[in-house]
Write a protein that binds this DNA or RNA. Structure first.
Lengths: 254, 254
DNA sequence: CGTGAGATTGATAGCGTTCAACTGTGGTGG
DNA sequence: CCACCACAGTTGAACGCTATCAATCTCACG
């Protein structure tokens, strides 16, 4: 019943925070059976579409976006391996955002009942998922602050550092350079600038010696200094020390 | 052991979505024992402060904010009766934002272990909380879109409609007018504008016949038309139809 | 009646937009 | 193999929304 062998993505992700039991591992892998594949640029769901399934990112890179009145678009979030996507399906039964594959990617699709069963049988996992959701809210709040109160350069730099940080979490390498499969229009839609100004900002950053570019490869020349300059806060490194209390409290159930 | 009589705030809130069992009601009320009171303007927790407790808003009005390098401030969210606050305590053990009382308010404080126990014993409630968290993320995403891609007037109008909608959920009345205990500086910090420009925007809205003001009382003259004009999406009305699947899946446990 | 916080108003500057053109590159079909 | 096209990136000029700076006004309060 359980596909042993390779580790599931949720298993890996949650396993970073707590020590999983065998049955928990099985349960998490059980969620990752229905696989769907998408090409770069393909749309997974469209804003407003009916959707009663969650998705887990198995591989690749996506973004969620909203279309706005004036024909504008706002990219709300990027999703990477191990992220849970389309959670609005739980609440409304339709998608609140358009989900687009940035690179070729694989997703696992799971009906919301499957999540409900997980919550019923594995409260500790439920607690971790709730924690992850809380962390994501904080990350989103950071973006609000970034868009509301900082200038173009800071926004672009924040985005670059954020993406780098998340890619790093996935492959572990302390990347100084990474591939950015996004157009400058995309970048603009993510940080709330026009493509024109994104362009100027990138060249400015290049001129100032913060980054180097080769095609879509971005190299951060001194990420730490940049992070300090713009007061970048990395919300993706969830402290390990928080889990014990939650874990202990629930441990005695197992 | 359970304080019978008055209904708890979480009980009320969650009871709007699902039919609660007696034991679930007890469990929710159990979370609301440690009460704390705050005056208008008082700070509950400061950004970065140690915090290992969640808070539930029992009465009153608060906001969460971040302070930014240049001395600027971004108000991230407003919290009303029934909201769960300080969830970042679960994940990091410290507060990611400064929490300030807008009006005089009462909060219930609960250690994160209490939440863990709730998750263990009442998976159905856990699922609802997860759903609420997902909805809040979508609401926050809307703010990102608002700040990133819309002009001053739209942002202010969005905020007003949003606040109205949430106040309405609490007291039930179809308020056309409501009290706004916020300075124009506060409004600016919420929507990413300077107080000067907030002022001009408000007068503009008044001149255009969208609103009327009497001191801190705001009257929306045609909320529906305004909502339509700026394509306001109300994310606080969580559809009732979503819960059944979750509920059914979990019901057989009870 | 002084005091102070918030609201209001004006003048000026700037960051980012808008509009528009041009370049470079990769893909496609003849 | 090349003409052609589409799309992304780049650059320039002018405009405008919003910020900044600075008064002034209002009003509640002691």
């Amino acid at each position: 019943m359980t596909n042993d062998g390779a580790e599931g993505v949720l298993e890996t992700r949650i396993g970073r925070h707590i020590n999983l039991t065998y049955s928990e591992r099985d349960a998490l892998r059980w969620l990752e059976r229905r696989e769907r594949r998408f090409e770069a640029g393909e749309i997974v769901v469209r804003e407003g579409d009916f959707a009663d399934c969650l998705h887990i990112v198995a591989a690749g890179w996506l973004h969620g976006s909203n279309d706005l009145p004036a024909g504008a678009r706002q990219i709300l979030r990027f999703y990477f391996k191990g992220d849970i996507v389309t959670t609005s399906a739980i609440v409304w039964g339709y998608s609140s955002a358009t989900l687009t594959a940035v690179s070729a990617c694989r997703l696992y699709e799971l009906p919301r009942d499957a999540l409900a069963r997980l919550f019923r049988d594995f409260p500790r996992l439920a607690a971790v998922l709730y924690g992850i959701s809380a962390a994501e809210q904080v990350a989103m709040a950071d973006r609000v602050a970034s868009l509301g109160r900082t200038d173009g350069l800071t926004r672009v730099a924040t985005l670059l550092l954020d993406i780098r940080s998340r890619l790093r979490l996935i492959d572990g390498a302390p990347n100084t350079a990474f591939e950015l499969p996004l157009t400058q229009q995309d970048l603009g839609d993510a940080v709330g600038l026009t493509k024109t100004h994104v362009n100027r900002t990138l060249r400015q950053m290049e001129a100032d010696g913060w980054i180097e570019r080769e095609g879509r490869l971005i190299r951060l020349l001194d990420a730490d200094a940049l992070a300090q300059r713009i007061e970048f806060k990395d919300r993706h490194i969830i402290a390990i020390d928080w889990l014990p209390p939650v874990k202990m409290a629930l441990e005695n159930v197992t």
